[in-house]
Design a binder for these strands. Structure first.
Lengths: 158, 158
DNA sequence: AATGATAATGATAATTGTTATCAATAGGCG
DNA sequence: CGCCTATTGATAACAATTATCATTATCATT
């Protein structure tokens, strides 16, 4: 469904993030939403470029940053020096998850195995930290690092 | 105390991480251990340089990477595009903590406010994920993002 | 303690992800 | 429809990190 919004800035919560609603911006969000996993900025660029050859790389960076500030997408650190992105379903309650990251090959597995327990602890912590340190918490990242099955099997040589 | 080890590679668990034990490597670890907070690679470089003018930046990068792989130090993502480091006290049980990171100014607050509860959940999760996905988990990162008190006070303009 | 194979270093070039610049363009309120 | 200005696209600039390579230092073996 394309029509998340007709194509108007639509207040301060829409894709426009309070700015003008532009075709490139929509295309970038659209592209990311159609991609599996956690594409890097460049991968998003390639994808958008496919249906919109004139797009500029800088525009992709700018909008990913904007969408992130607007809370629509989320940044994932795969430890490979590039920024990776994914849709932020956290708010909508759609598909919030945490990560399992391989230190050797950089693969990222999403997991949702945390039950109510984990969610409860998180929101409790969030509230507590918020009060104690005066931070305005908007987001969190929980990741486990190590070796994926494949890399672990290769032995820990070199 | 300097003498974490006389100055020999000392097996595969020492600072040498299974490689040759060198003075630069020791100096780099030493420097990091004397620094507060979460210095960047360059900050570590500057500090080491003070007592060892000939040190090369590449050597610092190489050894930080090595020490990280060896589990002696830990990487912190402050979201400012640079890698930051801290001693890994996780194993030793010394001062393990999690982070509260400001998205605007990049400041990082360590907190240890999680009680037994949090630790229990983590180790439970670690075990569960390890079994389910075949990952060999060695490490985790729990960070809350948002605005620190100061930045939040400045309003969310711009 | 001297030797020698080779891992590690230091200086620097190269690479790479990201950001700044700026003229041209397009969004959307009047 | 027309204007104001945010946004774009192309590209230069930037900064952090990595690769290269001749030289030096470590340390197992003698």
């Amino acid at each position: 469904m394309n029509g998340r919004c007709g194509r108007k800035a639509q207040g301060w919560r829409g894709l426009g993030c309070g700015r003008r609603m532009t075709a490139p911006r929509e295309a970038i969000y659209q592209a990311l939403s159609e991609m599996a996993g956690h594409p890097s900025a460049d991968e998003v660029f390639q994808k958008v470029r496919a249906g919109r050859p004139g797009i500029g790389l800088a525009t992709v960076y700018r909008n990913l940053e904007l969408l992130r500030n607007g809370g629509h997408i989320r940044l994932v650190d795969a430890g490979d020096g590039k920024a990776h992105f994914e849709l932020n379903h956290a708010a909508g309650g759609g598909g919030h998850h945490h990560h399992l990251i391989c230190r050797r090959c950089g693969s990222v597995v999403d997991y949702m195995d945390f039950e109510r327990e984990e969610l409860e602890l998180i929101s409790k912590l969030e509230k507590h930290l918020s009060r104690k340190y005066g931070h305005q918490i908007t987001d969190h990242d929980i990741s486990f690092y190590g070796l994926c099955q494949k890399c672990a099997a290769q032995g820990s040589k070199r």
